[in-house]
Design a protein around this nucleic acid. Structure first.
Lengths: 187, 187
DNA sequence: ACCTGAACACCGTTCAAGT
DNA sequence: ACCTGAACACCGTTCAAGT
């Protein structure tokens, strides 16, 4: 059977969710598709760009488009959506963080945060730093959370609500910090 | 020649700084020591615990002990020291973040932040979240920073001061956010 | 355009055996 | 206590060749 790029990405997400990022190897993915590992190099120049495509698709699937009005509610919506998109797949947070680390893909959340903060009358010189600080929080928290959720397989149901409100609390710290900085400035 | 644990850690830091985390393999480290890779398993049960020991030693070497008084100045001192310790070795931030991700070592900065925040009269229920939020920021920013510094080999001298003040700005956001939360509470 | 088959240059880890 | 030598079960990537 013959595949193209999107089939490979789809199957990679299945393998990721079933076996985790460490087992998402070119050889294993080839095996799942009934194809030699070298065949994947027809679709992607290397594993990094395959992972970037998988991360982008994962984020795409997590999009819930209607955004609230008000810059702070919009910032919170973007961050919450990002977290939930990553939690929806096993090792999703680690995957997206890894892809971001080597400078590929996943630029959409950053751009959305920049747009929201700009609408909030934040000094333009502070916008990129504020946006990146939000992303560092979301990635850091969600990677930790997902690691621990997967570690304690049983009893995860009880921990889930505490994690939700803990995420909201840390997010509130960062957003309040941005508000403090905005207040000290032009407004 | 015969080594013990500390010799192996010392040499691992040399290899890390010279060749980077990706090339810090059991085989390469063995080679640098003039020893079979399997010999390293006499000193460490696996690579993860070797890396944890290397990360701990890296942080140990970065300690500049006198701490300022005032909870916020102390928080900033801990975060700045942590960043500088990681920047002192190639891929230092990635190493420490990786070790932290699989739940080993590097608990000292967290404990110090908890102590500082507790002294700052922050509601004890908020202290762990505030401390982890600070760490997410420091790790996220420093990993990004170190990746980009290493990418643009030339001209890094010009970028350094901008990175310093950018780190301080993001840190101010988080600290101000904590202050806002503290103000809303018991004080 | 999409894939095979074979190879290259690596990994971490185990384990019996040596000193 | 510290190390050797050999093996096991893997990796990502390249490349000539096939359809």
């Amino acid at each position: 059977m013959r595949y193209h790029r999107d089939d490979v990405v789809d199957r990679a997400l299945v393998v990721l969710d079933a076996y985790g990022l460490a087992d998402l190897t070119m050889r294993r993915l080839g095996g799942e598709l009934g194809v030699q590992p070298s065949a994947l190099y027809h679709h992607f120049p290397n594993k990094q760009s395959l992972l970037a495509a998988v991360a982008d698709e994962l984020l795409e699937r997590g999009r819930r488009t209607p955004r609230p009005s008000g810059w702070d509610a919009r910032v919170e919506a973007v961050c919450t959506e990002l977290r939930e998109a990553m939690l929806a797949y096993r090792d999703g947070a680690e995957l997206v963080a890894t892809v971001r680390a080597f400078g590929l893909g996943a630029g959409t959340p950053y751009d959305e945060l920049v747009a929201a903060l700009t609408d909030g009358d934040l000094d333009p010189a502070l916008v990129p730093t504020a946006a990146r600080t939000l992303l560092h929080y979301v990635f850091g928290h969600t990677v930790d959370e997902q690691t621990h959720l997967q570690a304690g397989s049983v009893g995860a149901i009880e921990d889930a609500p505490r994690e939700d409100s803990d995420f909201a609390l840390g997010l509130q710290i960062v957003v309040d910090g941005i508000r403090a900085l905005a207040g000290a400035g032009s407004r």
